[in-house]
């Protein structure tokens, strides 16, 4: 109901308005708005770096410094409520080239570890600088995830990346050019690809394949 940001309510100055800086521009807006909504509210166009507006697409990563701190944090612009004195910049990092692999080229699950080190040779060079963990807006223990993958413990590694939205911020935080989120996704994908074999699904596939199950479109329930 309140999506309309030109709403009269929000236009009038009131005590809940805060002043902050976004991409170097001074902006005043009600404190109930997110960073992206505040930009629109102040009349600045913003298309790039806007995605699902639901915290799961990873497109709107921003760097933020709060008034009472010199620390720079990574956040998602759609989820971050504005505060007085905040300094926000949309990240515009160019992505380094990706690793290239196809799951179907890994012959058996016995080969996964060997293939992993061929695909991600830099992963074992992690120097535990904590850069990826600091960069993650979702609070994922990225570094441990990489370490587990290097040890071949892919299922455990992948579990740590459940909430990963592939915003790529951890890539920018890594001095060894490891792509930690892609390591995590690889760990998750090989687990599914090689180890998910549900009997309930397989039985139903077989029943469909052999014609035991079909649909009569005229049958009424």
């Amino acid at each position: 109901m309140n999506h309309n940001l030109n709403d009269k309510q929000t236009n009038k100055k009131n005590e809940n308005e805060v002043s902050l800086s976004i991409n170097g521009q001074p902006i005043t807006a009600p404190d109930s708005l997110s960073v992206i909504q505040a930009l629109w509210h102040a009349g600045y166009p913003r298309v790039k770096g806007v995605g699902c507006l639901d915290g799961v697409c990873g497109s709107c990563s921003v760097m933020v410094r709060r008034a009472d701190s010199s620390e720079i944090k990574m956040e998602l612009g759609c989820q971050l409520l504005i505060e007085d004195g905040m300094d926000v910049f949309f990240s515009v990092f160019e992505l380094p080239p990706q690793h290239n692999y196809e799951l179907s080229r890994i012959n058996t699950s016995w080969d996964v570890q060997t293939e992993f080190h061929k695909i991600f040779p830099e992963a074992e060079k992690c120097r535990h600088c904590n850069g990826c963990n600091k960069a993650c807006p979702k609070g994922i223990d990225v570094e441990s995830g990489v370490e587990l993958a290097v040890k071949g413990r892919f299922r455990e590694s992948g579990e740590l990346f459940v909430e990963c939205v592939m915003c790529n911020l951890c890539m920018t935080g890594c001095p060894e050019f490891i792509d930690p989120n892609h390591v995590g996704l690889f760990a998750r994908r090989v687990t599914g690809y090689f180890h998910t074999r549900p009997s309930n699904l397989i039985n139903q596939l077989e029943a469909i394949r052999t014609g035991q199950l079909d649909v009569d479109i005229e049958e009424q329930s």
């Binding site: 799951l103 992948g158 998750r188 994908r189 090989v190 687990t191 599914g192 690809y193 998910t196 074999r197 549900p198 009997s199 309930n200 699904l201 139903q204 596939l205 469909i208 079909d214 649909v215």
Partner: peptide, 26 residues
């Protein structure tokens, strides 16, 4: 509806995970 089970199989072959019970069933 006839594509349903095959669609899940295809997604698993792309590397997608689903919530499973203790025996590995969906």
């Amino acid at each position: 509806v006839m594509d349903g089970p095959e669609t899940i199989r295809w997604l698993i072959q792309q590397g997608m995970q689903f919530d499973l019970n203790e025996f590995g069933d969906l």
